[in-house]
Every structure is written in C-alpha cells, then in structure tokens.
Design a protein around this nucleic acid. Structure first.
Lengths: 166, 166
DNA sequence: CAACATTAAATGTATGTACATATATTTGTA
DNA sequence: TACAAATATATGTACATACATTTAATGTTG
C-alpha cells in the first residue's frame, strides 16, 4: 500500500513555515525515513533551481561555474581534467565536455600538457576571471535558504548527512 | 608542484564515519553554511546514485519508476500528463517524454481522453504492475542510508530542511 | 458566431548525467 | 627493445533536466 505524492509547485514558500507534507501535498508518509528522504530530494532540487536561476543572467550553468571556481583556485597553475573530476561534487559528470563549453565561451583554454602529452592543461582566461568577479556580489548575496538556519543547526545538518553516508 | 589529491569516489564509505571534508578532500569551508550546502548536494547525489544502481537490473530509471508508481496509484483510473506533473517531485522534468519511454516498454498506454480531446489518458499495463511487483522486495530492502539515522534524527533532518525552504 | 485567450500536450534545443568504449601516450617489465 | 598494462582524455549513446515554442482543442466574450 503506497502513499501518493501530490506535489505543488516548487514553492516560493509563503510566510508560515511550509513543512514538506504541505509542499508536496502528501499528508502522511510511511515513516520518518521516507519523509526525510523525500524532503532531501525535494529541498536539494529547490536549492539548485534557485542557484541556477541566479546564474542564468550570466549565461553560465552551475557545473560550469563550479569548474570555473576550481580553475581560479589553481590559477595561474593549470588544471587537468583529472584534477577537475577529483574536486567536483559530482564525479560521474563529464568534466571534459563542460570544459568544452567554457573554452567555447572563451572562459578557459585547453592546451596539451608539455610534460605529459596525454594530459591537457586547462587555464582560466582573463574573461573567466572577470566573469567570476562580476558574479561575486550576486552569488554572495543570493540566499540559498541555508541562512535560515543558525550556524549550530547548519552544523547539525552536516552531521546528520555524514551519518547517512556512513 | 602540487599534491595529487585522491578522492574516494562516491564512497562505499568505510567503517569510520566519513565527514564531508574527507569525502571531497576539502579540509576547510568558509562557514557552516557552505559546508552544509555542499554536504546536501553531495549526499543527495550519493543517495540517488545508489537508488539508480538498484533500479538498473530492472531496466528502469528513477523518474520512470516514480511515474509508474503514480500510475499504479491511479489505477484503474487513468492519469493525465498534468496529473503526473503535479505529483512529481521535479516539476520541470518532462513527463510527456518519460511516458514515451514507458509506453515503448509496454508498461503504460496512452489514449486520447474522450471527454477532453486535448488531454491523454495514461494507464499502467499489466506488465507495468508486474514490474512494480517484482521490484518491491529489492526496493524495500535497499538501504538508502537514511536508516543510519534514528527516527528522531530523521525527523530532525526533515525539520531542518523545512526551515531551509521557509 | 467570430476572434481571442486559455489549456493540454508535444516538440525543439541546449545542457548535463551516467556509463561504456575508444584513442593516444606513458610506464613497467620480460 | 618490444609489448602489455596503466593512465589521461575524448567520444558515443541513452536518458533526463530546463526552458521556450508549437499545435490542437476548448473556453470566453463582444
């Protein structure tokens, strides 16, 4: 016997706190585990949609932005595809093709690594650095919702998530 | 020269609890907010990857499975694309094309709704019902990690997530 | 009723995910 | 040195996401 998932829209949640059962119009869950599970998926989607919206005016996607940040972190040293994969949150995504997009937009360059011709040296360009700089204020002022928590609650959240993956 | 950072791919995290800073080899974060944010994205990805792996043997993806569940909930009444969208966790996904896949696999049928010829009636087939039945035990025994929490902790997690979206 | 707006679904396009496989280069070793 | 294994990246394919546009049917209103 299954409970159904009625989902409203990704809410501009209004003044009173919207519990997950209200957001997706599902009054009951099998147990707290199912409820937390659905809440995790839903809330993470909610956060990422907001982030992507903030990035849209800069014509950059979230994965592209994340890679640019890694490239800036390396700058002026080069990165390789391997290094990008290691540092990305999503290891199964395709760094090579995301770099393609950045190169096409002139935010990164790709050259064969002289010391190891299998590898490629990837550098952020001045235009890429400038883009990140321009995005800075928007990104830092963008409220992802996390700041609705106290620092203690945020730490508590991290601990719970760590425990899930244990 | 820089140290080669090895990231233990989406972990079968080993006995000792792997904190997020270990998982992605980032020793420090700007603050607890950034840490919790990254942990959310990472952990949700971790969970979904495990789920998808469990579904693979049935040759069904997670979105396809979720829609099949909704169709079974309606059965023997039909669903429409609109109804599917309302009940899906991810409203921006394309229900129409996911139904395409289910129809192609003979797990669903699509017929023009007689009372409103703009809409389509979507039904789960016997093969679809059988598939869900066969998946039941695998899905219910699959540990998504949530069960590493106590019910109280799961409830606490839900509360924190609700607060994020407030 | 005609003109226009709304609704339901499908389609188009760009991007990304997930995974398998291919290509080139380098390393290890018999 | 020759040759297999390992490494670094790229490519292919299927699927899904995100969002804009199109097509058809239905409602609405002057």
């Amino acid at each position: 016997m299954y409970v159904h998932i009625f989902v409203a829209s990704f809410g501009k949640s209004t003044p009173p706190l919207m519990k997950i059962e209200d957001e997706i119009k599902q009054p009951t869950f099998k147990d707290e585990y199912q409820k937390a599970h659905i809440n995790l998926i839903y809330t993470t989607g909610w956060i990422q949609l907001r982030q992507a919206a903030a990035f849209r005016e800069f014509d950059v996607t979230l994965p592209q932005y994340n890679i640019l940040r890694i490239l800036r972190g390396q700058h002026p040293k080069p990165a390789t595809v391997n290094l990008l994969i290691e540092r990305m949150l999503d290891k199964t995504s395709n760094a090579s093709r995301i770099v393609d997009k950045l190169v096409a937009k002139n935010y990164a360059t790709r050259t064969v690594c002289p010391s190891n011709r299998r590898a490629v040296d990837i550098h952020i360009t001045d235009a890429g650095l400038e883009l990140l700089h321009n995005m800075e204020s928007v990104v830092s002022h963008q409220n992802t919702g996390l700041h609705n928590l106290t620092p203690e609650e945020a730490a508590q959240l991290s601990d719970l998530l760590d425990k899930i993956r244990d």
